[in-house]
Every structure is written in structure tokens, then in C-alpha cells.
């Protein structure tokens, strides 16, 4: 297990390095500098600016400096929000996104697994068909379609829930964003759980368990649940990535002051350092979470332990 853990951790390092270098180099080869958007600056001021941002050094040295700063948690200054560093912007807005994402993930896992199990146990019956049709809808309606539709129905037409913002931070403000974020994930997890549960229930060791007289509930929970959830566990990585991407849209539509909204605004304003900072931050997050999922998987499957 220790060897497994170490090799996974070492395996994640090149991924991170490639991610950081790739985004760094992309920025360097991009047409136009960060100061092009404004009026033509006098050459000496531009030179000063370039020196201030260390843009006059060789690219490799800049990359090295960036990596060194990153290791200390410094993402550099924002080009757009001149008074803030990117680190401050991330630190200020990420907790909001995190709260949203964690709630959505929890909702997605509990509802998705439950619906998937019900569908698997009632295979080819009404409950199965309803769950699967709902899941297909969840997958097919993108969150940027679902979000405005939900707002239209529940906020504009019915007036039950607020249309946007965090307001006083009450639950009613979170309901629509969290549901929007969770819906596609619920759908994916339900489909995944159903498929793997059906597979597991057909396997010979389940027949053995039934031949031992175990009750259907014991068979399901003690024998079938763990193997059936393994695909769900390995989906957790992509699911987290999906929730993070989704929050970009959801925060935009619901006006939630999270990291996703900063990212979109940074992208539209060509705030290179901010965009890159967010890419590196989220990339690292995804790599680290994937690593944890890998380890969890290794712990769940005894055949991977050593």
C-alpha cells in the first residue's frame, strides 16, 4: 500500500509540471502582451512595466521564477485588478465555490447511488425506466440550459426562490445553484451505479451468497455494494472536474461571487495572470483529488493492495 501510494504521488508530479509549463508557455507565445489592450504606452514606461513583471528575463528563467513563487503559494499579481494579487483573489472567492461544490457533490452521490440501486433492483420495470429516462434528461440538458430554465420557472414565474446572488447566505439562495450543479452528476452516477450493480448482481459470488440463504438486503449491502461502487469511486475524479467546470457557468448565471465567475471575467478581460492562476489552481486541485480517489480505490479493492 505504501509503495502504491508513493508511486501514485510521484506519478502526479509530471502531470502538474506539464500543466504549469503548458499554460505558462501558452501565455508567452500568445499574440500581443498584457498591456496592448490599453492606449499605446510610452516605451520607457512599458519597459518599466515589463521589468516590474519580470517579462524581460529569458522564458526559462521566468518559468523557474513562477514555479518557485508557486511553491510558496504566490500566483503573482493580477493584470486587471491592480490592487490584488491572484493569490488574494483565489483565497477570497474559492471558499464560496467550495461550499457550493461540496454540497452539490454530496447531493449527487447520495441521490445518484440511491436512484441507481433502485433502478438496478427493479431492472426493466417502471421504476427503472423512470429513473433512466430522468437520468438521460439530466445528462442531455446542459447546466447552462438548466440554470436559466430553473430561474425562469422557480424565480421569475413562480417566484418561490431568489434568482441570484448569495443574499444573506441563506439556504434559499443556494438551492437553485446547488441543484443545477448536482443534476448532471446525479444522472451520471445513477447510470453508473445501475450498470455496475446489474453487472455485480449477475456475478457468481452473488449466487453463492444467495445459496447461503442470506437475505436480499444483506446480499445487496454486504456483498454487492462495495464492488458496485468501485466505478462510482473512479468516476469521482471526473465528477469533481465536472462540478468545478459547472460552477463557472452556475456562478455566472446566478451571480455567485465564486472563483468560477472571476475566471470568466478574467478570461473576457484578458487578465492573463488571473486566468493562468485559476487554471493552475484548479488543475492542481483536480490532480490532487484524483490522487486521493486513486488511493481510495486502491484501499477499496483488496487486489490492488500490496
Amino acid at each position: 500500500m505504501l509503495r502504491f501510494t508513493l508511486s501514485r504521488i510521484l506519478g502526479a508530479i509530471p502531470t502538474l509540471l506539464i500543466l504549469i509549463s503548458l499554460s505558462f508557455l501558452l501565455i508567452r507565445v500568445a499574440p500581443g502582451g498584457p498591456f496592448d489592450s490599453e492606449k499605446q504606452l510610452p516605451p520607457e514606461i512599458e519597459a518599466n512595466l515589463r521589468a516590474a513583471y519580470n517579462l524581460d528575463e529569458p522564458v526559462v528563467q521566468q518559468l523557474g521564477r513562477y514555479l518557485w513563487n508557486l511553491a510558496q503559494g504566490d500566483f503573482g499579481p493580477s493584470f486587471q485588478y491592480r490592487d490584488f494579487t491572484v493569490t488574494e483573489l483565489i483565497a477570497g472567492s474559492f471558499p464560496v465555490s467550495l461550499r457550493l461544490g461540496a454540497m452539490a457533490m454530496l447531493l449527487a452521490l447520495s441521490l445518484g447511488v440511491l436512484a441507481g440501486c433502485v433502478a438496478a433492483l427493479r431492472q426493466n420495470r417502471l421504476a427503472d425506466y423512470s429513473v433512466m429516462t430522468a437520468a438521460m434528461t439530466g445528462i442531455s440538458v446542459p447546466n447552462f440550459v438548466m440554470a436559466p430554465l430553473l430561474v425562469l420557472v422557480f424565480a421569475v414565474w413562480l417566484g418561490w426562490l431568489p434568482a441570484g446572488g448569495l443574499g444573506d447566505g441563506s439556504v434559499s439562495h443556494l438551492i437553485l445553484p446547488v441543484i443545477t450543479l448536482a443534476l448532471p452528476q446525479i444522472a451520471y452516477i445513477a447510470r453508473l451505479t445501475r450498470a455496475s450493480m446489474i453487472d455485480v448482481l449477475r456475478s457468481p459470488f452473488i449466487r453463492t451468497a444467495r445459496a447461503q440463504g442470506l437475505t436480499p438486503l444483506t446480499v445487496l449491502i454486504r456483498h454487492a455494494m462495495k464492488p458496485a461502487l468501485l466505478p462510482v469511486v473512479s468516476y469521482l475524479g471526473p465528477a469533481l472536474a465536472g462540478i468545478i467546470t459547472g460552477s463557472v457557468v452556475v456562478e455566472q448565471i446566478f451571480g455567485v461571487p465564486g472563483l468560477g465567475r472571476f475566471f470568466v471575467q478574467g478570461a473576457l478581460n484578458r487578465d492573463y495572470t488571473l486566468v493562468m492562476g485559476v487554471v493552475v489552481f484548479y488543475g492542481t486541485l483536480i490532480v490532487v483529488l484524483n490522487l486521493m480517489v486513486d488511493l481510495l480505490y486502491g484501499w477499496l479493492d483488496p487486489r490492488l493492495r500490496r
Binding site: P204, F205, R207, T208, A209, Q212, L214
Partner: peptide
């Protein structure tokens, strides 16, 4: 009655035992 009065042994022990549970756990469940 199954597992108590009448028991069964299957052909392929690799697939007929649950690979995710320890031997002891599978026995204790019975």
C-alpha cells in the same frame, strides 16, 4: 434453509467467492 440445511459448492471458486471481502467476513455473514 439454504446455507443451513442445504448448502452448495460451485464450480469456479475464484468467481464464486466475493473478491472484495475477506474469507472470515464471508463466513461470518453465513
Amino acid at each position: 434453509l439454504r446455507g443451513a440445511g442445504i448448502s452448495m459448492v460451485f464450480q469456479d471458486p475464484m468467481t464464486a467467492l466475493n473478491p472484495y471481502l475477506s474469507i472470515g467476513r464471508q463466513m461470518r455473514l453465513v
